[in-house]
Design a protein around this nucleic acid. Structure first.
Length: 309
DNA sequence: CGATTTTGACCAGCGC
DNA sequence: GCGCTGGTCAAAATCG
C-alpha cells in the first residue's frame, strides 16, 4: 500500500463527513476495521435504517457495518444535504485540513475511498501483525528486556473504533465524565500545538483519547476517542450535568452504551457558542445532516432507556 | 505517599 | 536503507 491515504495510522479526522443535529454541526467520523471497502448503492438515508439497528449497535460493532454504510450512504450532494458549510470557520477548518479544494467542496469521494481502503489495509496489516505480535507476546522474556529496549505490545496494533469531534473551547482536556491519565504528548507535524495522549484510568478499560488543537483554528480542540468504555462514566453516576453536557462526553458515550440517548438528549441547539462540536465518521460518504433529529431518528430508533446493572 | 503529568527514548510504518 | 512521523513506554518530576 503506497497510498498515503491508506495508512491506517494517518487517518485524518477532517477527512470525513458531517452531520448536523439540531443546528449543531457534527462533521463526524467513526473508524472501524471491519468497515470494508464496499460499493455503495446510491440510496438515501431516509427510511433506510434497519429498525433494529442503533448507533449503539453500530458503535459497538455489533451490527453489520455494510448495512451501516448503506444507511449512511447519501445519494444527495452536500449541498442538497444542506450541509452547514455556510458556517464559515468551522467548515473551513474541515475542508482545509482535508485539502479539498474550495471550488469543490463536495468531493468527498476521495475521502471515502481512502477511509474505506484504509480499513481494508488495516485489516490485512493487523492480521499479519497479529501473529508476529502474538509471538512477541509469548516471548515472556521480552518483558524483562523491556527495560532496555523492547516495547510494543500486542494491543498496540489492535485498532478500536474511533470517534473524533471538534469542540470550540479554550480547554484542551475537556471534562467528559471519565478519568484519564496522560501517557504521552507529541508535537504534531504542521501544527504548533502538541497532541496529548490519554488513557482511561479505569482498570481493564482500554479507551484512549487524543487531544489536539486545530492549528487552523486554535480555538478548536480536536478530540479523538478510541475504544469503548467497559464501565459507566463516573459523571453519569454522579449525575454531573455539566460533564454530561460536554461534547466530549457525547463522543465518549458514543463509544459506550448510550450514544443515541445522549446525543438526542444533549445536543440541543442551546445557542451556547462555547461548545460547537463536530464529530467525524471516516467511512461515511457524504454529509449527513440530522435536523431536528428527523434524520437521526431514521437511524436511531426512539430512545429506550437502557437498563444497565 | 499514591496518583498523575512530563518528557526523552524507543519502536513501527511509510515514503523517498 | 534512511529519515520522518505517530504512538507508546517508563523514569523522573510534580501534585494533592
Amino acid at each position: 500500500m503506497s497510498d498515503e491515504n491508506n495508512d491506517p495510522y494517518h487517518y485524518n479526522p477532517f477527512h470525513h463527513d458531517h452531520m448536523e443535529i439540531g443546528g449543531t454541526t457534527f462533521p463526524f467520523f467513526q473508524d472501524h476495521p471491519s468497515m470494508s471497502n464496499q460499493p455503495r448503492p446510491a440510496q438515501s438515508l431516509h427510511g433506510l435504517a434497519p429498525s433494529s439497528m442503533t448507533f449503539t449497535d453500530f458503535l459497538h460493532g455489533s451490527v453489520d457495518y455494510n448495512s451501516v454504510s448503506t444507511v449512511f450512504d447519501m445519494s444527495c450532494s452536500p449541498s442538497e444535504a444542506n450541509f452547514p458549510a455556510n458556517d464559515g470557520s468551522k467548515n473551513r477548518v474541515v475542508r482545509d485540513s482535508v485539502g479539498i479544494s474550495e471550488n469543490n467542496p463536495s468531493t468527498p469521494s476521495s475521502w471515502v475511498s481512502s477511509s474505506s481502503s484504509e480499513a481494508v489495509a488495516e485489516e490485512d496489516s493487523t492480521k499479519s501483525k497479529k501473529d508476529q505480535q502474538l509471538k512477541e507476546c509469548e516471548d515472556a522474556d521480552e518483558k524483562s528486556k523491556r527495560v532496555n529496549k523492547p516495547k510494543k505490545k500486542v494491543e498496540k496494533k489492535k485498532r478500536e473504533p474511533r470517534f473524533a469531534f471538534m469542540t470550540k473551547s479554550d480547554i484542551d482536556n475537556l471534562e467528559d465524565g471519565y478519568r484519564w491519565r496522560k501517557y504521552g504528548q507529541k508535537a504534531v507535524k504542521n501544527s504548533p500545538f502538541p497532541r496529548s495522549y490519554y488513557r482511561c484510568t479505569t482498570q481493564n478499560c482500554n479507551v484512549k483519547k487524543r487531544v489536539e488543537r486545530s492549528f487552523q483554528d486554535p480555538s478548536t480542540v480536536i478530540t479523538t476517542y478510541e475504544g469503548q468504555h467497559i464501565h459507566h462514566s463516573p459523571a453519569t453516576l454522579r449525575g454531573n450535568a455539566a460533564a454530561m453536557l460536554s461534547p466530549s462526553y457525547l463522543a465518549s458515550t458514543a463509544l459506550g452504551t448510550n450514544f443515541p440517548q445522549q446525543l438526542l438528549n444533549q445536543m440541543h441547539p442551546t445557542g451556547d457558542q462555547a461548545h460547537q462540536s463536530s464529530v467525524y465518521y471516516p467511512n461515511f460518504q457524504q454529509h449527513v445532516q440530522f435536523q431536528d433529529y428527523g434524520l437521526l431518528q431514521d437511524v436511531v430508533p426512539p430512545f429506550i432507556p437502557k437498563e444497565e446493572p
